[in-house]
Design a protein around this nucleic acid. Structure first.
Lengths: 240, 240
DNA sequence: CGCGGACTTGATCTGTCTCAAGTGCCGTGG
DNA sequence: CCACGGCACTTGAGACAGATCAAGTCCGCG
């Protein structure tokens, strides 16, 4: 149901985006690591573009490693981050032949890219993708609920809960052992979190500060957050 | 990409919901019309429940005729309508074995219900569903943009544009012949539109009134709306 | 040391929600 | 046939969450 959130804990691996002509020009983005049966394995640095919103759709992708964000822009510049994806998730499928949303890396990413024509011919591959799509649809449903009906505070709490594997979902394990605290790494800037949650950067910042003041979170450096009381955070998500 | 919106134009067919024990009890909702190869064909009256949010998932469904809404509720009663579906669309798939959203009819509906176990075994059926899922994902992406970033006015304009087949999408035909006017039937109440667009009923009503005052819409009876200038409406959607 | 980027915090503004009437239509029953 | 009640919708007035505008702070880096 929820994202594999360990994938967002790679911020420490981040290196500053460095321009490399080989990675940015033409339709074949990314660094080809291996050619295989039907799929090429590509690698991308953090903060690089895999798909532009207007690209012709030549490939479908499955993530092997790292985190990818799918986003859309309105002509006046308003942006919405639609999905945050991790290992196993798929993107780039389309029925129109044109991608209608962009895909960018958050962390170092390795994907398998399947040529569209080859993909269409391979039924068993499509089944694998379809299975994954079901999960992603479920996440999109939850996210629609969040965007349409939750308060800013609930959105931020929900976002943070998704970063904690095994908690908050239908099969929540409850508090473990003694203390119910967990550390997570937030691989997104405040602006990106805002674009994901349908808020402004300031509102996201205020929600973080408020949760910190209440002792539910603690953090020094912005992307290394400790949730000091997971259950209490969970009760702020609106789902209880 | 967009919904097949002719499916929302059946309000005139509506009959008042009538209670019928056969339709409401137990897991096998709906009226079985035919048993077939792997799938049963079921019929439902307007405004009836196909799936409850907590149902165990026994079937996957494909719509043959009519409109279905998929929704979720928070424990405190806030509701979000996640998707509006028409003929060809599919729902009820899950990887968890539990449905996590409800499905209700808007109009008289005929669906094919595939037993979950049988469905899992039939690869070609899954491929048909997968193809359809791609379209629905695309619609969910657009809807996330709407919920996260559009104003009330833009949301309502976008909603109305989706009711006009062949217009507003990537392959928009532009104004036809002389006048650019179209009649649509809105099969949802203001409250349902609000729950779909992440607004309140009053805000939806005000947006309708405003568009009417500006001469972009006209309507007497609430569910029979004439868009008097489709292109002008389209320019209010935020997508231009 | 000074600059720039990401974040925080405060003050104010505003779009949407909330609360509260009021209207019109339709079906029911006298 | 008309009075009545209920439901969906409209409209207005005021409140409020979150947006916007504007300083700041903190930290890494050249």
């Amino acid at each position: 149901m929820s994202l594999d959130t360990r994938s967002f804990e790679h911020a420490e691996d981040r290196v500053p985006p460095k321009f490399d002509a080989r990675w940015s020009l033409g339709p074949a983005r990314g660094h080809v690591v291996a050619e295989g049966t039907g799929g090429r394995i590509l690698e991308f640095e953090p903060r690089h573009t895999i798909i532009d919103e207007t690209d012709a759709a030549r490939c479908s992708y499955m993530i092997l490693e790292g985190s990818v964000m799918i986003s859309k822009m309105l002509p006046d510049g308003r942006r919405q981050i639609i999905e945050l994806l991790g290992p196993g998730d798929v993107f780039g499928m389309t029925t129109t032949g044109i991608h209608e949303s962009a895909a960018d890396t958050l962390t170092p990413v390795r994907v398998t890219a399947y040529d569209r024509a080859a993909f269409e011919r391979d039924g068993s591959l499509q089944l694998v993708f379809a299975e994954r799509l079901k999960n992603q649809i479920c996440a999109l449903h939850d996210h629609a609920m969040l965007l349409g009906r939750k308060t800013a505070r609930e959105r931020v709490a929900t976002f943070l809960m998704r970063l904690i594997p095994g908690r908050g979902g239908s099969g929540c394990l409850g508090p473990q052992a003694d203390a119910d605290r967990r550390s997570v790494t937030v691989a997104l800037t405040r602006q990106e979190i805002a674009d994901y949650l349908g808020l402004t950067l300031e509102t996201v910042s205020r929600a973080f500060s408020q949760l910190k003041r209440e002792g539910i979170l603690s953090y020094g450096h912005h992307d290394a957050v400790t949730v000091t009381d997971v259950c209490r955070l969970c009760r702020q998500t609106g789902a209880h």
